[in-house]
Structure formats: C-alpha cells, structure tokens
Write a protein that binds this DNA or RNA. Structure first.
Lengths: 265, 265
DNA sequence: CGTCTTTTTGAATACTGTCAATTTAAGTGG
DNA sequence: CCACTTAAATTGACAGTATTCAAAAAGACG
C-alpha cells in the first residue's frame, strides 16, 4: 500500500532545490512539463480562482512541480514536515487523521482543482495524510515561495486566507452531518455534494463512478461499511438511485434532496 | 434571548468608522478603554501568540475595540457581513451552524484568548453564529485593517495563516470524535480538552464550572442531552468525576484519559 | 484458475434516542 | 417572603437505528 510516498515528496523537493538533492529524482514520479497557472484548465477551481487576471499571471512565477501519485500511494503522512500545499490536477485523494489507538478517520475527499495540506501550517507538520485513490497528478506548491510571491500583493494574500477559510466552512458542514444526521441523510448529503462538484467540473451530475470504497465512505460519514452498503440498497429500493458496485446513477435528484430533510416530521 | 446582538456589532463598527454612524453607540456595550496587545495579559494565547516582540508592538496600531456581550446575546449571526475577527477577552462563547430545517449544531466553544469568526472570510459572510454563554468581553479586530497592517510583514502574515490552520486542525479532531467515538469517549475527550485549556490559562485543571448546558454539550458532541447526563452519571459511578449540575471535579484524571481509549479491546 | 478483496445481506446485539415523569434551581411578581 | 412559573438536569422504560458477527456472492488480479 504505502510505498514510495516520502520518496515522491522528496523528489518534488529535490527538483525545486537541486542543490540539496542526494538521489536522482525518479523520472516516473515527476512531470517536468511546466503548465502555467494562467493557462491551466483548472484555474477556475484551483489556487487562481477569485484572483484577477494580473494576479494569476503573477502566479506563473511560482516554481511548482507536477508529480504523479499512483493509486494507494501516500502523498504526505501525518507528521511530515510542512513544505508544500498540493493542488489536485487529476484523480482523487482522501485525507485521513489517525488516533493514538490506530483508528483512522477520513476527513475529506479531494478532486481536481482542490487544495490539500493547508492544515500543516499550524504546527509546521502535516496534521493529516493524503492518499491517492487512483492514478493522480498533483501540483506541489512550495509554501514559502508562495508567501514571498504574494508579499505586498494584498489581493493575493486574501486568496490564501479565503481558501483556508473555505476549508473551515467545509468542515463545519461535515460536523453538522456527523453530529445531527442519520445514515440516509449522511449518504444523501455525500452523494449530492459529490454530484455538485462533478457537475461544476463539467461531468455528469447524475451518473458517476465512486473512487472510494464503502469502508472509506463509511469512515468519512461516521458509519460502518455495512451501513453504507445497506443505505445504498435502501436508496435503490426507493428508486432514488441505481447502484452497481461503485457505479452510481441518480434517478431522482429531488427525492435524494428530500432525503436530506426527511428527519423532520 | 437574541436581543441586541446586531446592535452591538454595529456599535463596534460605528466606533471604528464614526462617519458612517447613524445611531450613537450604546455606552454599556463598548468599552472605550484601550488595552494594547503588547501589554495584554492574554497575549500568549491570542492573536499575538507566536509573534516576535517587535511584531506585537506593531499590532498596537490596530484600531480594535473592546465590547461587552451579555449572556444569551449573539455577537454575530450566520450570514452577517464579515468585517471583524473577534478575540475573547473574558467569558465563554459557543459558535453554531444552522441547517435549512432549523437543526442547530454547536461547532465550537471559545474561551479567553481564542479567536472567532475566521470562517467568514471565505464568503465575506459569517458561516456560523457566536453566542455568549455568560457575561463576556471581546476585542473586535477589523479584518481589513489587520490585512493592511501586516502587508509586507511576512512574519505577521504567517501568523494569521497559522491561526486559520489551527482552526482546521481543531475541527479535524472534532470530526474524529464525531465519526468514531462512543458517548463515553466523546464526553471524556470534551472534558479533558476543557481541562487542558483551563490549565493553560492558570485555572484548575481538575475542578471547574461548565458554562454550557447539557443540550449545548450534546449538540457539540453529537448526542442528546439525556445521553450527556447519563454519561456524567456513569463517570461519577466509575469514580472518575464528581458532578454537581455544572460543577465538575475530576477525581481520576488517568481514568478519564483511559476512557478515551476504552473502545479498543 | 485460484486467491484476495470488496460488497451485499442476514440475524442478533448493543447503544443511543425518544418519551415521560420527577427533582432541583432560578426567576417573577404579588 | 412566599407562591408561582419556567428552565435545567436526572432518571426510567421502551423503541429504533446502527453495529457486530457471519456467510455468501462478485469482481479484481496475478
């Protein structure tokens, strides 16, 4: 499972600061091709979002590195030194926190254009780990470079603050979900959220493939994998979904939305 | 319950920008006394924490305003325009998010030195509300002023990022709690966290008064007020605590810590 | 083609929620 | 100061939802 994750992280690091490099970078892990933020097809979802055109071109001076992470590999571990924030270019990640006794909790799923690693700033160490759920590509953005780049540019400083704040808001919703929803509401909220994010990226809102296992969904939603499976079956019986393993087709979007508010009489 | 909260917020605003004031500021709500960050007794917990001495003195130029909020009053509502971040000077707040159907979830309790309102940056509107649980005092720090003040001072920019990141990390723990702990573990985690924060502020770690109701604790921990009450009784029977309504005495700190890990065999 | 993992489903259990009654504390007003 | 009202907390009985344990089916992979 968790193979050369640190290796990759080091490779990214080494490319950025070759003078510190001890080992040659693994060519399979790093894509030397430089894509500029200003011309990136993800610029409306990623770091550049909410920036003015000028600011985005300013971002092009950022020495970030694109890197591949294969399914099951870990991009960064809990406790790793915080150096980069990562933007997902393609594929899906999960981020997890681990309890002393080994219990693991999925705290987020991340798809293209979304940022990971912002929780590392607090302690200078990552507070969660990020694992690829499929073949993925990420941009590793060196945080200190980003800081110096935006110094003085208050419009750009704001953007980073906003992105962190957005993460706080996102976690609020998840706490709401975990704290006061039943199994059906949780899964409905999860699917509708996924649907929206896919739609915003130009994919179908009603038909998609889950990149995560029942166990991972369960960990994220605070329930067991069996309950996740049963709830999928229940939705199918209510003719809200068609489920075939990880392939989902939402046949009654309104009905699913109602399942979110079913709790009240 | 929720009386002149917006009023107070406006008063703070008006004091800072008197040219916009329509109504005189309520003198009971605002304390004109200026306390400097550099000489504040909370500087090690609040905004100045992790700043160098020079930077803290720089903070003294910040035109923040101290304000009183009485028990039950709301400092800011969900959806209010984001202008200030608030630092608790004394007393306790809860912050809540509300679902469309009216369900409310407590997402945090805040005591002296802790910041509130950072979630408002994302949308320019507060994503949660803050309600005083007792007689309180807060410093209202105008965010745009703070931004201009730290512009160019990268060491100070960092601090704001760290504070937001810390909030993300804090919410991770709560998600862990809500997602994978049972009632006893949740209450134990809550009490131990409270105990630590009180201790850090020079109060007793083992004996304290809860400022929040059973219902508020329950909302925060994702359980009903009855279960909270029963779990308090259970801890009392296990001789971990002595409970008298809201007065708590932890008689077996180790035992309580063990209750956090009881879930494993 | 066999092994391993993932998913589904069933049955029994356990935990927490719901409903209800009681106690205690805290105000309120005559 | 006391009767009255209201709110908060405790406790019991019961119901319901989700978990646990177990088994079987369906893919995925070498």
């Amino acid at each position: 499972m968790q193979t050369n994750a640190r290796q990759i992280s080091e490779n990214v690091d080494n490319l950025l600061r070759p003078e510190l490099s001890r080992r040659p970078a693994a060519p399979t892990a790093v894509l030397p091709l430089k894509t500029l933020c200003s011309s990136c097809h993800l610029r409306d979802f990623c770091l550049p979002c909410e920036m003015s055109g000028n600011d985005v071109e300013y971002l092009d001076n950022l020495p970030f590195v694109r890197s591949r992470v294969k399914a099951g590999q870990i991009l960064f571990h809990e406790g790793d030194r915080f150096q980069f924030i990562y933007a997902v270019r393609s594929g899906t990640f999960k981020s997890c926190v681990t309890l002393a006794d080994g219990r693991e909790q999925v705290v987020g799923f991340h798809m293209n254009g979304e940022l990971m690693g912002l929780d590392g700033l607090a302690q200078g160490k990552h507070a969660s780990s990020a694992t690829a759920l499929e073949e993925t590509q990420v941009c590793a953005i060196p945080y200190t470079h980003l800081l110096t780049l935006v110094a003085g540019k208050s419009s750009m400083q704001q953007v980073i603050g906003k992105l962190m704040s957005r993460e706080i808001v996102r976690e609020h919703s998840l706490m709401m979900l975990l704290g006061s929803m039943n199994a059906e509401e949780r899964l409905a909220a999860f699917l509708l959220n996924l649907s929206q994010r896919l739609k915003a990226r130009g994919y179908s809102a009603s038909e998609f493939h889950l990149r995560m296992s029942r166990a991972e969904i369960g960990s994220y939603l605070g329930m067991t994998l069996e309950t996740v499976s049963r709830t999928f079956s229940a939705f199918q019986q209510q003719s809200l979904l068609e489920v075939d393993k990880r392939h989902i087709r939402i046949t009654d979007m309104n009905g699913l939305t109602c399942a979110l508010e079913k709790h009240l009489h």
